[in-house]
């Protein structure tokens, strides 16, 4: 449901901006308060997750040794998580990773070293996954406006009024 009172501007563009950089879509729409809220919450969650995981928990690797299901959620973060796809492609085609190895898929030795972080590896993964998933909600908000709970209350009131009128007629 698109709100008529909230300036959504160009919803598809806003949604794209919101996905690429959390908070940017709402800034584009002029919804500055929500832009700041989303940016602070999601970026903090993502960056803290990266810190817990020593910067090595966002990557894409899909082979016999490792299937990185977590990336499906992490990619919701947009630009901060997209280099993992490029790095994975480059490594799989025997090319050197770029961006100083940011989000390059770890080989088995590097993966073992990451797993030595123990629960912090898992915790960092969870934080970055949640950041990505929350950004998916934010994208919907940028595209369609908020899913007002007040509308559900209005429907209940409207339904109750209809029932009352129906009972009065009978």
């Amino acid at each position: 449901m698109q709100s008529e009172t909230i300036p959504l501007k160009d919803p598809p563009m806003a949604a794209l901006f919101a996905w690429l950089i959390p908070g940017l879509g709402h800034l584009y729409q002029g919804r500055v308060g929500k832009a700041i809220l989303f940016a602070v919450c999601i970026w903090t969650t993502f960056l803290y997750g990266m810190y817990l995981g020593n910067g090595g928990i966002v990557f894409f690797r899909w082979d016999a040794g490792e299937q990185r299901w977590a990336y499906i959620c992490q990619v919701g973060m947009g630009l901060p998580a997209l280099p993992a796809l490029l790095q994975s492609w480059r490594v799989s085609h025997n090319r050197n990773p770029i961006l100083r190895g940011y989000e390059k898929p770890p080989d088995d030795n590097e993966l073992n070293r990451l797993n030595e972080l123990g629960r912090y590896f898992e915790l960092g993964t969870v934080y970055t996954m949640i950041a990505g998933l929350l950004n998916v909600l934010v994208v919907f908000d940028a595209y369609n406006g908020p899913a007002y709970l007040e509308d559900e209350e209005d429907e209940e009131i409207e339904t109750a009024s209809k029932l009352e009128r129906a009972s009065v007629k009978t």
Binding site: L37, C41, L134, L137, A147
Partner: peptide
């Protein structure tokens, strides 16, 4: 902090 962030972001997508 996870619960806090999830609460804030989810609620902000439900209201303006």
């Amino acid at each position: 902090p996870l619960a806090l962030v999830v609460s804030l972001v989810y609620s902000a997508t439900r209201h303006e």
